[in-house]
Simulated assay, not measured.
Amino acid sequence: MSRLVHYVGSLPPEINTSPRDGMRWIIDHSADAGLSTLPWDSDPRWIVEFLLGLAERGEALEVVQSGDWGDYDKQQRYRVKSGVKLTASHVSMRRAERIRQNLAVYRELVADDSRLDGVPFQQSLPSPLDLSLFTFGQRPVLLKHVATYADALAAEVTDLHATDGDDLVWQLEAPTVLVLLNKTPRPLRGFVARRLAAQMAGFVERLPQEARLILHLCYGNLNDRELVAPRDLAGVDVFLNALHTRLRAQNRAIPPVHVPAAYGSQPPPVRPQFYAALGSVHADWPLVAGIVDENQPDDSRKALALFEAAADRSSHAVATACGLGRHSEADARAAAALMTELSTA
Results as ranks from 00 to 15, higher is better:
residue 287 L to E: 13
residue 193 A to L: 03
residue 269 P to G: 05
residue 311 A to L: 02
residue 299 D to M: 10
residue 306 L to Y: 13
residue 315 S to Q: 06
residue 194 R to I: 01
residue 204 V to C: 06
residue 239 F to I: 01
residue 210 E to H: 14
residue 263 Y to K: 11
residue 195 R to C: 00
residue 203 F to C: 10
residue 213 L to P: 01
residue 251 N to V: 01
residue 186 R to D: 00
residue 266 Q to R: 13
residue 190 G to I: 02
residue 291 I to R: 02
residue 265 S to E: 03
residue 182 N to V: 05
residue 185 P to K: 12
residue 306 L to S: 02
residue 237 D to C: 05
residue 230 P to E: 09
residue 259 V to F: 13
residue 317 A to M: 07
residue 213 L to D: 00
residue 306 L to M: 09
residue 305 A to F: 00
residue 283 A to F: 01
residue 266 Q to K: 13
residue 226 E to M: 10
residue 217 L to M: 11
residue 316 H to Y: 14
residue 178 L to H: 05
residue 233 L to I: 06
residue 308 E to N: 05
residue 301 R to V: 05
residue 284 D to K: 15
residue 192 V to Q: 08
residue 297 P to A: 14
residue 209 Q to Y: 03
residue 286 P to T: 08
residue 258 H to V: 08
residue 312 D to P: 02
residue 244 H to V: 04
residue 247 L to V: 15
residue 226 E to K: 06
residue 204 V to W: 11
residue 301 R to G: 00
residue 238 V to E: 14
residue 207 L to T: 09
residue 239 F to R: 15
residue 245 T to G: 04
residue 223 N to W: 05
residue 199 Q to P: 01
residue 190 G to P: 00
residue 300 S to I: 02
residue 237 D to H: 15
residue 179 V to H: 10
residue 180 L to D: 04
residue 287 L to W: 11
residue 255 P to Y: 07
residue 299 D to P: 09
residue 269 P to M: 09
residue 278 L to A: 03
residue 316 H to Q: 07
residue 217 L to H: 11
residue 178 L to G: 03
residue 225 R to V: 02
residue 204 V to L: 12
residue 268 P to K: 12
residue 227 L to C: 04
residue 230 P to Q: 09
residue 202 G to K: 13
residue 241 N to S: 11
residue 202 G to R: 12
residue 266 Q to C: 01
residue 313 R to I: 04
residue 217 L to N: 08
residue 286 P to G: 03
residue 219 Y to L: 06
residue 184 T to M: 14
residue 206 R to V: 02
residue 255 P to H: 10
